[in-house]
Every structure is written in C-alpha cells, then in structure tokens.
C-alpha cells in the first residue's frame, strides 16, 4: 500500500512557508502524516525558509526589546486548554492528524444514496471548507467540477478516476480545469478528507438535489 499521488512541490512549499489557508493546511497535513517522501520535502523547504530568514535584511528591534524579553524568560509557558475532540467511539477514523481531531465535527449528513458528508469546523472561517466524505462500495461519485480548488486526501478505502487508483494517504488536487469521475472501490467504504474552495458544480438532477447540502 504505497502512496502514488502527492501534492505538487508548490503546495508543499506553501505549507512549509505557512501561507496556505487553514483548510488547505489541514488537507496537506493529513497527507504529510501518511507520506514520508513529502515530509522530507517539507523539511527541505523549511531549510529554504531558514536560509531566506537569515538573508532577509534585518529590521532593527526596539531599544528595550531584549530587556523586555529577558524579563520574561523565567515565566512559565502558558498552559494550553484542552479542547473538544472527536466524540468517544469515533476516534477510529484513521489517518487524521491529532490537531484535526480536536476540531469540532458536525454530524454525518446523508447527501446522496450511500454518500455521507461530515463537516469539520475549522477554528477560523476561511475560503476553504473541510469535510469528511464517506461513500459506499462501488459508488460512482457525481460528475462535478469546481469554481475553486479542491483537495482530497484518502483516509480509508479507495477510489479510481482518470488519473489512476487512490488509496489511503493518496492526495488529489482538483481545480476549475478538471472534471472528476471517481468510482469507489467495490470492496468497502471510502472515507476522504476534502478541503474545498469555492462552489462545487454538480451535473444532473441528483447534483441539483445535493447542491444545498454540499454547500454546508
């Protein structure tokens, strides 16, 4: 079970630079948890960040800055309040980074035959919505396109589409230019984490029925 589909270098670099919005950050983090190859590249890009940091022309600190910092060195670090996590009994959703598990999760919503969506509430509002998508065996997911970027990371099960087969850890990026026709594997449910920007455009009657739900 090896990972075949990775985020591109530019996305990994934006992750390393800390310039992704929080929804996309979650999607890339989920892939990184599964993928040593991309983790290594992110580490490398963090070294690039280190180099850029040392090369940036320094901006002088205020005259009392060091004294102010030194005065605080004895302080105990702030303790972090424990935040709510995935409810008991639902921690079995595999492959989710721990920090995502601490976010608030909505209920599983039925959106189409054998397709359920479960929103993840990000700590801050952004352009990207994040949700879990659970689809039954053999489900032919609706033909759709996007007005923005959609990132998908497989957590469990798998699906196939034009670009090949996607299993746990695999990452898919869709944008305006790509039409997807994913078909879920016949041997079990597929659970994905999806980070979606903009509006989804679904084709057909079922699509129009599904639209209000997917808008979350």
């Amino acid at each position: 079970m090896s990972i075949q589909h990775h985020p591109d270098d530019a996305l990994l670099s934006a992750f390393a630079g800390g310039t992704l919005d929080s929804g996309q950050h979650v999607a890339i983090a989920t892939h990184l948890l599964a993928c040593a190859r991309c983790r290594n590249f992110v580490r490398t890009m963090e070294r690039v960040g280190g180099s850029l940091l040392t090369d940036v022309p320094p901006a002088p600190m205020s005259s009392n800055a060091f004294a102010a910092v030194e005065a605080r060195l004895g302080e105990a670090p702030p303790s972090r309040p424990v935040t709510p996590s995935l409810p008991e009994g639902e921690t079995e959703i595999p492959g989710l980074p721990k920090f995502v598990r601490r976010y608030r999760f909505g209920r599983w919503n039925w959106v189409a035959p054998s397709v359920h969506v479960r929103p993840i509430e990000l700590p801050e509002p952004g352009q990207t919505r994040v949700f879990l998508l659970r689809s039954g065996p053999g489900t032919r997911l609706l033909q759709h396109s996007h007005t923005g970027v959609e990132m998908t990371c497989v957590l469990a099960g798998g699906f196939s589409q034009e670009q090949g087969h996607y299993g746990p850890g695999d990452f898919d990026l869709g944008d305006e230019s790509i039409d997807h026709h994913p078909v879920v594997d016949a041997d079990g449910d597929c659970i994905c984490l999806v980070a979606m920007q903009g509006e989804l455009r679904l084709a057909g009657l079922l699509g129009r029925l599904m639209q209000p739900f997917v808008r979350l």
């Binding site: 950050h25 963090e46 180099s51 940091l53 040392t54 972090r80 309040p81 700590p123 801050e124």
Partner: peptide
Amino acid sequence: AGAAAWIFTIARNLRIDAYRRTQRGID
C-alpha cells in the same frame, strides 16, 4: 533541522497562529 530552519518554523507557526487569532480569537 538546522538552527535557522528551526527558528524559521517557530516564527512561521507564531505568524500563522497570530493571523488566526486576529480572525477569531482562538487558541
């Protein structure tokens, strides 16, 4: 990580968190 890369990640994370905090006052 090298020292510079390590300090870069600390700074980067603080920047991300500061940006989020100003948006919603979250942890």
